[in-house]
Simulated scan of single mutants.
Amino acid sequence: MQLTRYTDLSLRVLMYLSYPDRADLVTIAEIATQFDVPRNHLVKVVNQLVKLGWVVATRGRSGGIRLGVPAGSLTIGQILREMEGTKALIDCEGEICVLRNGCRLRGALADALQQFYRTLDGYTLADICSAPTAGLIAQMHRLVPTATH
C-alpha cells in the first residue's frame, strides 16, 4: 500500500500547523514554499481539512490557517481513513477473476488493512510531531520571513 500524494500533503499540513509557538496564522503560500509543493494542490487539501474541522481558516488580508483541534486528539489512523477512504486493497467485484468465489486473498488483505489502521490509531499527531520532528518543524517556522504574514 502506498499513500496518495493528497494524503501525504494532508499529513504535512497538519504536522506544520501543530507547531505551538506560532502567534500568527500560517498561509497556504508559506506551506507551499516550505514543502516545495504546488499551491493549487494545497488549496484542495486545506479545504478538505477545514471541512473535517481539523483546520480553521480565516479569510482576508491577515488571514490564514491554524490547527482546529488539539494535536493529541487526532490519530494518524483517523487521518488516513478520512483521506484515503476505506476502500478494499483489491477489487474483486470489478475484475473478472475465476478465483473470486473461493479465494481468501481479499479477506487476508482486509484483515491486514484493519491492522494497519489499528496500529496507526496508536499514534496521534502530537506523537509524531514530538522530538526530533518538533525541532525540524520549529526550524521551518523560524525560517519564515515575517513580511509574508
Rank of each mutant, 00 (worst) to 15 (best):
I28C: 05
P132D: 04
L89G: 12
A57Y: 09
D127Q: 03
Q78W: 06
A32S: 11
R59W: 04
C97S: 12
V56R: 15
G77I: 03
R118Q: 10
S18A: 14
R106H: 05
S10D: 04
A138S: 14
A108Q: 13
A112E: 12
D127P: 05
G64R: 11
V69N: 07
R61K: 13
C103Q: 00
R106E: 09
L89S: 02
E93L: 05
M140N: 07
E95Q: 14
G72Q: 10
R61I: 12
P132R: 02
I65M: 11
V37F: 09
P20W: 08
T86V: 11
K51A: 12
L14S: 06
R118C: 06
R104I: 02
E84F: 04
Y117K: 00
A88N: 01
Y16M: 11
Q114E: 13
Y19Q: 10
P38H: 14
C103V: 05
D24Q: 12
T33Y: 13
L25P: 06
K51Y: 10
N47Q: 11
C129G: 03
Q34E: 13
G135H: 14
L89Q: 07
K44S: 13
I76S: 03
Y117G: 07
L120Y: 08
H41G: 09
G94C: 06
G64A: 02
T33P: 02
P38D: 12
D24M: 09
R81A: 05
L11M: 15
V37Q: 09
H41W: 08
S130Q: 12
D24T: 15
L136M: 14
A131W: 10
I96D: 12
A29M: 13
D111V: 00
P70L: 05
L80A: 00
R104W: 05
Q115G: 01
G102L: 00
L89I: 03
V43H: 06
A110D: 15
C129R: 00
T58A: 15
R66A: 12
A131F: 11
D121S: 01
Y117S: 02
I128W: 07
L109D: 06
S10H: 02
G64S: 07
R39C: 04
A29G: 13
C129N: 14
K87W: 09
E93H: 03
L99Q: 09
A138K: 10
R12G: 01
D127V: 02
A138G: 13
Q48W: 07
A88S: 10
D121N: 07
L113E: 14
G77P: 08
